[in-house]
Design a protein around this nucleic acid. Sequence first.
DNA 1: TTTACGCCAGTTTTT
DNA 2: CTGGCGTAAA
Length: 785
Amino acid sequence: MSLNDDLTPSQRAAVEHEDGPLLVLAGPGSGKTRVVTRRIARLIQRGVSPRQILAITFTNKAALTMRQRVEQLAPGAGVWVSTFHRFAAMLLRRHAEVVGLRPNYTILDESDQRKGLKLVMEEIGLDFSHYPPDRMAARISQLKNDLTTAEAFTQRYEEGIGNNWDQAVARVYPEYQRFLLASNAVDFDDLLLHVAFMLSEHEVLRQQLDHRYRYVLVDEYQDTNAAQYRIVAALSQQHPNLQATGDPDQSIYAWRGARIENILRFEREFPDSRVIKLEENFRSTQAIVRSADRLIGYNKQRKAKKLITNNDEGESVELITFDDAVAESAGIARRIRELSEQHGLTWSDFAIFYRVNALSRQLEVGLMRERIPYQVAAGAAFYDRAEIKDTLAYLRLVANPADRTAFYRAVNTPLRGLGETSQRRLSAWADANGVGLIEACERSAEVPKLSKNAARGFRMFADMISRFDLATRGSVADLLTEIVERSGMAAAWSGSPREEDVQRLGNVEELITAARQYDEAFGDERSIDGFLEQTALVADADTIDDTAGRVTLMTMHSAKGLEYPVVFVLGVEEGLIPHERALRDLSGFELEEERRLLFVGMTRAKQRLFLTQTRLRTFRGRTLASIPSLFASEFEATRVDESHGTPQVYFDRDAFNEPEEQPEPAEPPVDPPTMAKNASVADARPLLMSGADLLNGGKPSGTVNPNRFSEGMLVRHPRYGLGTIVEISRVTSRTNVTVKFTHEDRIQTFIAEKSPLQPVGVKPVAEPAPARAATPDEASPGVPF
DNA sequence: TTTACGCCAGTTTTT
DNA sequence: CTGGCGTAAA
């Protein structure tokens, strides 16, 4: 039977690959998922047992899609398709004792992880203002992603080498790990780190699993970090039937430890590997492919690769300029309505992407006003709500009494008069006596200095927890219901007339509904651990329901791997895309990642692609004039200006509008014209651009030109705000710019090439926010499963 | 000792 | 605009 007649030669080659390492370099829309699922089906057809196949994806949604497609091709096979984190969580449960955990360990979310870290830092006596916990967390996370254990790190710095930060990390990291172990808990990074070490330090176990998972297929390989690489590699020694699928141009998680090198060195790491490139795009129109391809061509650290498609030319990509975010969202809403009417599209054919979540707010208002139903991909947000976390804290405590952060969260929620001081006394005594917090509660009479009320309160709390028991309740949903009732949380809200309390109750009910679904889905297999794991490992994109008949809103990061007939990317402005933080990285590495991110966003579109920018952007309460994104001059697009009545224009408003005929080289820039020959990307891209440069579409006209501003020009400084250039002076090779800021009459001089000053196109309006309809009801985020 | 309130600072992307 | 922190009242 010819299963694969509809495949291209390279797709078929990949599908028909049998044993040995396989690297599939797959551009966007090149039929990657199809290849993976077909190959799995074919392996099964050839007699490979489905349980020897392991497919790993990035998100649960991708896993679900893949599982369904495999199911269609090979009904009943039941191949394991999972995310890295879920796979790791499963292995860890099965072999918890190997790393000193018990199988009922809990997975801490970010805020509880942060809380634990703070406790540890406090204990050590580190000052939060000198050592912000967030930064500490980021440092530790980086180390974990890079497979550096606490022991390894402290060993490196115990002799007092290294700076203060390293010293601090060297003290906190191991203590934090001890805290986690004592809580029988892991953070996200630990899931991978523990498993990576479990596999590298226990050869017997490794071999056993290597044998068990004989065929391993990894999706989005360009986004794997060192720990994930280690896991995959460990499962592919005796049976190196590893299929890595990915695209270096879509690597967008370097900030989270992803190593683009993993994909680049695949051939070296896995000898005799076969490499197959899928370059033909079946998803998008020529116009879209060309536009995105041109953009990505500006990345220097990249193997040249050409995206091609045989699809229709399609409508041209549009870059639309609006006055502000209100106009932007209205304009998008209008287009969605028009397109859906003209072409018979449904709401779910549309997606809107943005760089930062904060931008979704105004968009939602605009869509609601137009009565366009939408969903926001923000699953984590649901579980971030205080009432949800509180409720889950009880559940965690039932499953894992050692879970300290859960204890601290639950013990005084709702308020029971068991405040911080009492908790500290209890903890101190528990630690001194080597007993858990729950046991300390039971024996609170023995705890010194505890008030009568507190002692009684703790005892009652322990009593209550001990009565919550899944076995007698039967289902997680019923147990949750009982928790909400008996803990007093329901009572605290149900009588209340306050809108937010009503909402809270609703959210908790939604959680219980989710638990009920879980109960039904897992039947006899259900467990508190299992449910908690589900809730802990949801990704934002997992909540998307393609059948919901709603427009989908999400970040470009979440959009990876998805596709929509019509895509809008909003806020294509300097500081947003590329994000200002990326601009600070002088190596240009982060800028290139931003470019890849936009590339990912653009290539999600099948038929129509719109990118939008505004002249004024209100952010954190401040309204600032926007600067067109560097990238706006790099992709191909028809420019549409829907702005009007723009306040005073300082230099030509055409800065926003490229000349009619694009100054585009026929060939995508192999040697991008903006880049100075031997300067890094960032060096070649001065932060200051003259009006003429902007007119040019943001492309600096030459190499570093110090004369890119003039006296009287309005500029913006990230810290001091708006100002006017009052003086320019040149000292030998450098140029000093003196700026008088509008705020506080500050006058300051900067070195032109190094300052973060940016010219501003228009004067900001004092208070442009128009009256807005009262915020409509929250769109219910829905509970993801 | 606990809670409530007001002030200040910080703010990407996510499993 | 939010959340975390410090201070003041119960």
